[in-house]
Amino acid sequence: MTAWVKYVAAFSITTLVFIAGIFLGNVISSGKLQTIDVLQQDIAVRTIGSELQYVLLAEHPCENIHANELSQELFEIGSKLAYMEESLGTHDADVLNLKRYYSLLEIRHWLFLKKAQRECNAEYDLILYFYSNEGDCETCKQQGYVLNTIHRKYPAVNIYSFDINLDDPVLMTIKRMYNVTSPPTVIINNKTMAGFVDKEQVEEELFKGKNSGPKNK
């Protein structure tokens, strides 16, 4: 081989390997997004199932609520979405779509629990969290970490997180209802707390008016 042929050959092989590496990476990323999609479909079906169950069992609707399991799974999907957002970027169209759907699922689940709370006199700890990852929220990462810790410590607490910048009418309504204007905002059992809330404050709010506090599984 003459000298320049070697360079051309190396250049071609490198480019091929490079493209293959990028392609493989992208295939796996979209595979992961698909996993999230499947998980969300599953949750959607099961939420509808719970709701129907609730309506059907008109006599004793309150005995059959297994809400926490779903809320746990929703939370896991949330972490996966956040991870994908970090690796694909906050403006990835697929991620945004999944996120919008995810928010609706969360709201639906949250509303279901609120209803059960009213009608069954059940006690649920409900936390709504509004964050932003547009770079305009310095404490959002820490706030997320605090709530993650709460989730690990008290699995019975239902935590729903929402991207404050997500342009969705239902989300807008909730924001208006709870007076949410800037990130981070945490709403613990209907009490709106704007700005960063540390772990102790969250715990205090959860324990308020209870003897034992949230269940610690």
């Binding site: 490079f18 590496g21 990028i22 493989l24 990476g25 992208n26 796996i28 990323s29 992961k32 996993t35 996966k80 991870y83 690796s87």
Partner: peptide
Amino acid sequence: FFLSTGPLFFL
């Protein structure tokens, strides 16, 4: 799921 599998990982 949380194992990094971006293009750079393969490279």
